[in-house]
Structure formats: structure tokens, C-alpha cells
């Protein structure tokens, strides 16, 4: 401990003590309350709680204007208990989302019923999608030519549903490629997608009964930089002369750079994405494109499992329901019956 001897310094400290004493004794009630608490943790908790309450408390008044610089203010709202500061109360349910909740529950119920129907052996008709039907032929082409397959599982992370859909397709493509003993190359941009893709390809080889053909080097990380990744993928297409290129997942501006290069190398290309802005580029440069929801449907088509087909059918029925709702809403709104439209809160 250091003893202060300088007079000026002592005076300054005394002034400071006096200032804080005044503050603690005379000023906010909350400081007094906090000082009565013994533990630092409790004191900080109380101060933080008060701070949170204060920054979220507001006074309200209404200002009416004619838009030409004239305005009139109402007095500040005062609650019956005389309090002017209003503190918002936390809700346990967001009422604006009630329609969303109903739609989700309805969809979940539809999925359940369709899965049950599929389990009981009911034949579910699913409309054919050219891009998915051609996957087998595309793999077969690579086998015949003796060249590798390139599979890009999008540039997004694992939390993106499109990436998960892409990985689901990868498992089917990798299995087929393993059965045909065709090399598959999977460049990854995301660190977390990499081990999952490795595991999927490895498992596909085991399932196909060809664990010996699995090459760990075939699923690899390139870089996280968007255009450096494209340069890497384009280099692979040119050097390895891939016969079939798959692009399944989320893509941004790099989509055209990859598919044009693939097109120039003469590879058959199948793309699938839910990125609406990239779809025109894929449609123009790829042989087949899975548009939006078709990307999510692909794994169901390829697996032919009733459980997964059931969810697909439920999706179709839900879409029908939405279309009927939109048409009904349009007709009712046209004849000035807006009650139906008002059920759906505008965002």
C-alpha cells in the first residue's frame, strides 16, 4: 500500500471522496440499494437489471402533422398510477406468427399422414424431373469415358438447408460412382462441410461394397475465398478433364464462372440450387437444372424410400393449398371482401 504525502494529492482525493459520498447519499436510490448488497456479483446484477430496464423505458406522445411543417403534439401519456415511463412487457408468443404456426402444424400433419399412407403401401405418384432422372446417365457417361466426376456441394456452410440437400444428393451420387468404380472429386469451401462430405463419400463406398476404392484425397478443402475457390474448381475441371459435373447447393456470383468452364471442357453438367438469381446462369450453361424445390426433392427421388416420398407428396398438397388460398384471396379482394386477406398479417 502506498501512502500519499503530497498535500495537493491528498486534497484531490478528499474532494473525490466527498463527491462520491454526496452522490451515494443524495442521488439515485438504486446506488444506495446496490451499496447495501454485500457481494459484487449481486451488486452488478442489480445495476445491470436497472440499466436494462432504463434503456427500454420510454415516454410516449402523438405528433400529428399535415405534412407541410405544421404539427400538434398531445401531452405525454401518463398511466393511471401517474407513471410516465412505459416499460414494454415481454411476450411469450409472437401473435404475428400465428398463421406461420398454423401452416407449419398443418404441413407437419400432412407429412405425417403421407408417411403413414406410404408405409401402408399406397402408391404415391411423383412427377418425373428430367434433371434427377439423368443423374444415373451422367454417372454412366463418366464411367464409359473413364474420367472422374466433379461434385461441388455449394459454397455455403452446413447451416444452410441447400447444403444439406446437396450432401444428401452426394451420398446417392457417390454410392453410384463407387458401384461403377468411377472416381468422384468433391472440392469443399467450408471447413465443417469437409469432414461431413468425407464421411458421406466413405460410407457410400462401404455401402457399395467397395471400401478399397475410397480415396481420402478425393474430398478436399480448397479455400474459403470465393473466387480463389472458383479458380481451384476450374483448374480441376481443366486438368482432370471431368466428364460429369454436379453443382448442388447454394451458389453466388461464381456459378457462371464454374459452369461456363465446365461447358467449355465438354462435361455433362447437372446443377441444383435454390438461389433464384443464379438459376438463369445454370439453366443457360448446364444440361439439366434442378430449380428451387427440385433440389430438395432430389434425394427423395433417388432413394425411392416411402418415408421420404411421403414428405414430397405432402409438399405438393401444401403447395396446392397455398395456391387455392392465393386464388381465393385474389377473388375476394377483387370484390372488396378483405376479411380473408386481413387474416394474414402483412410483414
Amino acid at each position: 500500500m502506498e501512502t500519499v504525502t503530497d498535500k495537493e494529492e491528498i486534497e484531490e482525493i478528499e474532494n473525490r471522496i466527498a463527491l462520491y459520498s454526496d452522490y451515494i447519499e443524495d442521488k439515485p436510490e438504486i446506488v444506495k440499494k446496490a451499496n447495501q448488497l454485500k457481494s459484487d456479483k449481486e451488486r452488478m446484477k442489480l445495476l445491470y437489471k436497472t440499466h436494462c430496464t432504463n434503456i427500454r423505458s420510454f415516454k410516449y406522445y402523438i405528433r400529428k402533422t399535415d405534412g407541410q411543417g405544421h404539427f400538434i403534439d398531445t401531452p405525454i401519456y401518463t398511466a393511471p398510477n401517474g407513471e410516465q415511463y412505459i416499460f414494454p412487457k415481454q411476450n411469450w408468443f409472437n401473435n404475428d406468427e400465428i398463421i406461420t404456426l398454423i401452416a407449419v402444424l398443418l404441413f407437419a400433419a400432412l407429412v405425417y399422414f403421407m408417411i403413414q399412407a406410404a408405409r401402408k403401401g399406397k402408391r404415391l405418384y411423383i412427377r418425373p424431373i428430367a434433371g434427377i432422372q439423368e443423374i444415373d446417365n451422367a454417372i454412366g457417361r463418366a464411367t464409359e469415358m473413364g474420367r472422374p466426376i466433379l461434385f461441388v456441394p455449394g459454397l455455403s456452410g452446413i447451416s444452410d438447408v441447400a447444403t444439406l440437400a446437396g450432401l444428401a444428393i452426394l451420398s446417392k451420387v457417390a454410392k453410384k460412382a463407387a458401384e461403377y468404380d468411377t472416381r468422384i472429386l468433391v472440392p469443399c469451401r467450408d471447413f465443417i462441410v469437409l469432414p461431413i462430405a468425407q464421411e458421406i463419400v466413405k460410407e457410400a463406398h462401404y455401402e457399395a461394397g467397395r471400401p478399397d476404392t475410397y480415396d481420402k484425397n478425393s474430398v478436399f478443402f480448397i479455400t474459403q475465398a470465393q473466387f480463389a475457390f472458383v479458380a481451384g474448381v476450374n483448374g480441376i475441371m481443366i486438368r482432370e478433364k471431368t466428364a460429369t459435373n454436379f453443382y448442388m447447393g447454394m451458389f453466388w456470383a461464381e456459378s457462371l464462372l464454374m459452369t461456363e468452364t465446365g461447358s467449355a471442357t465438354g462435361a455433362i453438367q447437372i446443377a441444383g440450387t435454390d438461389a433464384v438469381n443464379q438459376l438463369p446462369f445454370f439453366i443457360t450453361t448446364c444440361d439439366y437444372t434442378l430449380i428451387g424445390e427440385e433440389l430438395y426433392a432430389a434425394s427423395a427421388y433417388l432413394s425411392k424410400q416411402p418415408l421420404i416420398l411421403g414428405t414430397l407428396k405432402a409438399q405438393d398438397y401444401m403447395k396446392l393449398l397455398i395456391v387455392v388460398t392465393v386464388v381465393l384471396g385474389t377473388i375476394l379482394s377483387t370484390v372488396h371482401l378483405t376479411f380473408f386477406m386481413n387474416w394474414f398479417p402483412a410483414k
Binding site: 404441413f107 438447408v161 450432401l167 452426394l170 464421411e199 428451387g292 421420404i308
Partner: peptide
């Protein structure tokens, strides 16, 4: 397209949550 994507995402999420779609766990 966005409508279909939304439903596809919900269906995929449901499949994953209910354990119907398990390929992300390692292929099987």
C-alpha cells in the same frame, strides 16, 4: 420458385429433425 423453396426447406428440415433424412450423419 421462392414458395417451392420455402416448402422444400421446411420439408428437408422436418426430415432431418425427425431422423428420416440421415445422410449427413454419414451416408446410411
Amino acid at each position: 420458385i421462392a414458395l417451392g423453396v420455402g416448402l422444400g426447406m421446411t420439408a428437408t428440415s422436418l426430415k432431418i429433425m425427425l431422423g428420416i433424412e440421415r445422410s449427413y450423419l454419414g451416408g446410411k
